[in-house]
Simulated scan of single mutants.
Amino acid sequence: MRYRELTDLVDDVLGPVQGRLLLDELVLGELGGRTGAVALADGEDPRAVWHALCDELGIPDARRWGSDPHRQAPPRRADR
């Protein structure tokens, strides 16, 4: 997953305002107590950030990939 795909999903699934706020301010245990924005700045894979954000918010798998029926869910990394 690329950064642009992450931001598209954040906007689609969480809303452009709330989603960006959550990415910037929600501390995620799966990311070592960092926010998504800090983790991305530290070089974390955007896919790991997206999964951590969805896990923390309880987003079900069926909603994680937004409204585009052709968008394919990127697999989780084996170590997550």
Rank of each mutant, 00 (worst) to 15 (best):
A52M: 09
P46G: 01
R64W: 03
D12P: 03
G15W: 06
E56V: 06
V17P: 03
V27I: 12
R20C: 05
L6I: 03
D8R: 00
L40I: 07
P69H: 08
P69S: 04
S67T: 14
L22F: 15
P75Y: 07
W65S: 08
L40K: 12
Q18S: 12
A52D: 14
E5K: 01
R63E: 13
L6R: 00
G43T: 03
L26G: 11
V38H: 11
Q72Y: 06
A62M: 13
D68N: 13
R77S: 02
P75E: 14
L28D: 07
R80Q: 13
A37S: 15
E30K: 12
W65Q: 12
L21I: 09
A48C: 15
G43H: 07
I59T: 15
R20N: 07
P60L: 06
M1F: 12
A52Y: 04
I59A: 11
R34W: 04
A73I: 05
R63F: 13
H51V: 13
V13P: 06
R80V: 09
V10Q: 00
R64L: 09
L21P: 00
I59L: 15
V27D: 03
R20Q: 09
R4Y: 05
P46H: 01
V38R: 11
V17T: 12
L57Q: 03
R2A: 01
D55L: 03
L26R: 02
R2H: 10
D42V: 05
L31T: 07
D61N: 13
Q72N: 08
D68M: 08
D45A: 12
